[in-house]
Each structure stands twice: as C-alpha cells, then as structure tokens.
Design a protein around this nucleic acid. Structure first.
Lengths: 109, 109
DNA sequence: AAAAATAATCGTAATATTACGATATGGGGA
DNA sequence: TCCCCATATCGTAATATTACGATTATTTTT
C-alpha cells in the first residue's frame, strides 16, 4: 500500500488536499513568500535566498507549477516565475470555505 | 537525504507547512469535514463512513491530534474527537494571512 | 565557435507517508 | 470474572517526498 486512495474521495476533498500539499513544506512556503515579495522571480535568486541546492529548488518549483499556483515563462536564459492569480484565488477560496465551515457550537469535549 | 531541513526555515514558515500538512490528504479533509458536520465524533463512525481500515483512520486521527487541530477525550469505551477551536483559529489565521499577502499588481508573465 | 550562465532533468539515497492485518489495551456489561 | 466492543499500536510493505551532485539543454556573451 502506501498509495493514497484518491478515487475514494470526492473532487473537492482531493482539490483541498492537493492545494494544501503545495504549502506542506516550509521551502515551498518560503518560495511563495519570496515570489510574492518580489512580484516576480528568477529561480537563481532563490538559490542564494534559500539554504537548498539549485536542483532541489527547481524540483519544488516544478511541484508548485504542477499544482498550478505558479506559472513560468521563458525570459532569455532565465525563467520568470510568478503567482498564477486564478489558481491562487481558487486555492484561497477553497481553503477559506473549508475553514469557514467550522463554527463553534460549544465543544463537546 | 530526504529529511526536511526544518531548522533552515523560520517558525512561521514551519507552522504554515505543518498546518497545511494536516489538510494535505483527502482522508484527513474528509475526517475534519465529518467532525465538523457532526460537531462531535466517534472514531468508529468514520470506519463506516470512509473506505479505509480502522487502523488507517486511527493513524490519520493521531496525526490530526498531533498537529493539534482535533482533541480527543475518553468517553467510556470510546474516544470523543472534536475540533480544537484554538488551534483551528490559529491555522485559519495563519493561512488567511498567507493567502492575503498576495495582491495582484499585474502579473509579470 | 567557445565559454558562461541559468535552469531542468537524471540518478540515487535517505526518510516519510500511507495502508492494512494482526495484536494489544482498556473499559463495560453479562 | 470473562468476554465484547472500541481504539490504539505494532509490524510490515508499497509508494512518495526530499535532497543533492552530476549532467544536460538552452541561450547569451565573448
């Protein structure tokens, strides 16, 4: 086993989990924070910013890109990465909806 | 390697990542949704609700409890699990702050 | 054309996660 | 007391993630 039984959960549950996974590593949180701070990003900047190797950072960027939270365009010999607004808003909406679904009615414990 | 270099990131980044990890599996999303819907919870209900074995569900509950999003009290031969309001609000606040930190200034790509 | 710069990908190793069956534990009731 | 129920934990296997060095690909500069 070890494989997540994705097919047994509904689309929204999988979507929330997928977006959450994007934030589930401090390096990716740091990468997103950096992109936001710069409002544009070049991968190599991150190599100097973060205590991780170039290949590791590239891998994290690939995951963020796969999930769709960032997008990248070739800009000369570099890649310009930035936040994908549409997906960001989608993630924000989903997560906020999820957090909003809990309202304390006085805990049972 | 394979070990996350936690010590290289700041407390807030690690905290965001830790909370996000709680949601990073559809089973845990489903578990939280169920607890919220019931406003109280008994583990065994979940065994009937979810297509996972009792031991797997127990393991997911343990993780949620470790992160602090739920708390459980012994209630006779059962365990009553429910949302830990304080932590839930903390997670909500952190994630919302994170999402709020991005405001489109016109994307660069 | 050769060299430099940037970033992706490959290969690989260590560790973490997911999952389940089997077993243990602890309380309640017969 | 002995058994049953609900949960936790153990052991184990499969898969995923994290990380890095080395290599590759691409483009720009020399």
């Amino acid at each position: 086993m070890g494989i997540t039984k994705t097919q047994n959960f509904n689309a929204q549950q999988n979507r929330v989990a997928s977006f959450a996974k994007a934030f589930a590593h401090p390096a990716r949180v740091a990468i997103l924070e950096y992109i936001i701070r710069q409002n544009s990003c070049i991968c190599n900047d991150l190599v100097e910013e973060l205590p991780l190797s170039q290949s590791t950072i590239s891998q994290h960027l690939k995951e963020l890109k796969f999930i769709g939270l960032i997008k990248g365009e070739i800009d000369g010999p570099r890649i310009c990465y930035c936040i994908d607004e549409v997906r960001w808003e989608e993630a924000k909406g989903l997560l906020e909806k999820f957090f909003g679904s809990f309202a304390s009615k006085g805990s049972c414990c």
